[in-house]
Design a protein around this nucleic acid. Structure first.
Length: 513
RNA sequence: CCCCUUGUAGCUCAAUGGAUAGAGCAGCGCUCUUCUAAGGCGUUGAUGCGGGUUCGAUUCCUGCCGAGGGGACCA
């Protein structure tokens, strides 16, 4: 909010002083001030002269003071009025981040095949997708979470699963699956049917587990029920043929994606008559956009990245309305000795997410995943993860929160209105000022994250906030202070913002540790 | 061979084209008569290699080297 205010003031000044329009940034940078901007350097002419001009124009502001440094950077230091304005903004209960403006967004993630339990690779998409959905909700989008269940009787993996259940194969075979197969007392001999039944059971377990790790989906979209049973593929095919976007060749049906920039046309119905994955995806996206989302976000594993282009092309071909964004999550490889091994459910070479959560605890696991960007190539080492877990920064952050709770519980003062902070002298204390600045950044961090989806920024922010508080805690005694009332309000606010940040990440904020 | 992603400190990760590349862990020093020492303070230590664009490059372009993924009528 303060950042936007500074930006607007600069824009005003630039408009008045220069004829140019420039694309400048105001960044949170505490090294030389509280915020800083490169505007004077980007403008034509001598950067320092530009900076001087802008500075003298901005000096009218009562919210911040401006200084010039380096090659022409403008650094802004908030005045007390500025700090109070920032605080007011994040405290105002009526206030809501309105970036999303109530637009409908769907986030589809995990969507693991119902052929086995979730492994550590799925953990990424699971927690990232969940946190992203939280953030988008926080800025005013209407968000729906969806999980695509790849349970079509026709699909290869369901048939393979059926084969295994009938003792004719070993794909996906684990101890757990053996148990399930026994429980089902299979009589039917049809691979598809058996596979479907087993998959249904596996899916049910996975849904239970996902709920247990704190993720709630609005919709579990069954390929079999929603697409296959409703003959959607036939309808889509007919439509594609009618629009002359599909044709038959070598007994298969192809989509003319090459006319829209793809390297080659793609098969949508195999020569054996089975629907390809691509057609299934197209039908699914027609369904999605038919539900009138303004934006659809798919989170896919890197092994599907080759499909991104053709999916985008298909969307264009069909003129589906709304934005489609496909995010790629890099895969997780297992480190065993010096060798890297790809996770494979078919080979049974996996570490289950369930086991990881049991060993390390949900909060530590969530933090572990969420502190990395989606593009990090993770080499997973279970021993290392366990070793690190005890020192997971999540505990540091939670510990700071517990200290805040402890202060609040011990103080006699129960009124925690933020207005008291602004009316007092405490803003003159350096450590209070630092803490307040960090609090003010909260809305800015959330806003940035909603724009670029870099959810890990929130873990960094949570850590920084905890760190600012820890320093404050060391030197500023709250209970018994002559400013106790004001300081209590500050602690309560810090506690509130920290809890909000952790909630976005899906991490708990215990009162005691 | 082609395409995508990627290479930052001993390890795990950050860094909207910006200023002195940040954290955590590990290491080495301090620091509990004080609201929780799971804390605080200090310190050692890094952009794979070579060009280019730019006032400025970890970031953009390009060549090489390494890693992961894709290049199926599997998903």
């Amino acid at each position: 909010m303060i950042r936007n205010l500074i930006k607007k003031e600069i824009e005003k000044a630039v408009k008045k002083l220069f004829r140019e329009k420039v694309d400048f940034v105001v960044s949170i940078d505490g090294r030389f001030g509280d915020y800083s901007s490169n505007v004077a350097i980007i403008l034509k002419g001598d950067p320092k002269e530009n900076a001087e001009k802008i500075k003298s124009e901005l000096n009218k502001s009562k919210f911040f003071s401006t200084s010039i440094a380096g090659p022409g950077f403008l650094n802004f230091t908030l005045s007390e009025k500025g700090l109070v304005a920032g605080l007011t903004y994040i405290c105002d209960s009526k206030y809501k981040l309105i970036l999303g403006k109530g637009r409908k967004v769907q986030v589809e993630f995990i969507s693991a095949n119902p052929t086995g339990e979730l492994h550590i690779g799925h953990g990424r998409s699971a927690f990232y997708g969940d946190a992203l959905a939280n953030v988008l909700t926080a800025v005013g989008y209407k968000v729906e979470r969806e999980y695509f269940v790849n349970d079509s009787r026709e699909s290869t993996q369901i048939k393979e699963l059926g084969k295994t259940a009938l003792g004719k194969g070993i794909s996906y075979l684990t101890e757990n699956l053996k148990k399930k197969i026994q429980e089902l007392r299979i009589k039917n001999q049809d691979e598809s049917e058996v596979g479907y039944l087993v998959a249904k059971k596996i899916q049910k377990d996975n849904e239970k587990f996902i709920k247990k790790i704190g993720i709630k989906f609005d919709k579990w979209f069954s390929e079999e029920k929603e697409l296959h049973a409703k003959k959607v593929f036939e309808k889509v095919l007919e439509m594609l043929k009618k629009k002359k976007l599909a044709y038959e060749k070598d007994r298969a049906i192809w989509l003319k994606t090459s006319q829209f920039g793809d390297e080659e046309d793609r098969v949508i119905v195999r020569s054996d008559g089975a629907v390809s994955y691509f057609l299934s995806d197209i039908a699914y996206h027609i369904n999605k956009f038919g539900r009138k989302y303004d934006k659809v976000i798919d989170i896919w594993g890197a092994d599907h990245h080759g499909h991104v282009k053709r999916m985008m092309i298909a969307k264009e071909m069909l003129k589906l309305k709304g934005d489609l964004e496909i995010l790629i999550s890099q895969l997780v490889t297992l480190k065993k000795g010096e060798e890297l091994q790809k996770l494979s459910k078919r080979k049974g070479n996996v570490i289950l997410l369930k086991d990881l959560v049991e060993d390390l605890g949900l909060d530590a696991v969530r933090w572990f995943y969420l502190q990395k960007t989606l593009s990090t190539h993770m080499e997973f080492d279970l021993d290392l993860a366990k070793e690190q877990s005890a020192k997971n920064p999540v505990y540091y952050v939670q510990y700071a929160g517990a200290r805040m709770s402890s202060i609040l519980a011990k103080s006699e003062i129960r009124s925690t209105k933020f207005e008291t902070i602004s009316k007092s002298e405490i803003l003159k204390i350096k450590l209070v000022r630092n803490l307040v600045l960090k609090l003010i950044q909260f809305s800015e961090v959330v806003e940035d994250t909603a724009k670029d989806y870099q959810v890990h920024r929130l873990t960094t922010y949570a850590y920084e906030l905890a760190s600012e508080f820890s320093q404050f805690y060391r030197d500023v005694k709250v209970i018994g202070s002559e400013n106790e009332k004001e300081l209590i309000a500050l602690v309560a606010l810090t506690r509130n913002i920290l809890a909000k940040t952790l909630k976005l990440l899906g991490i708990s904020a215990p009162e005691k540790m």
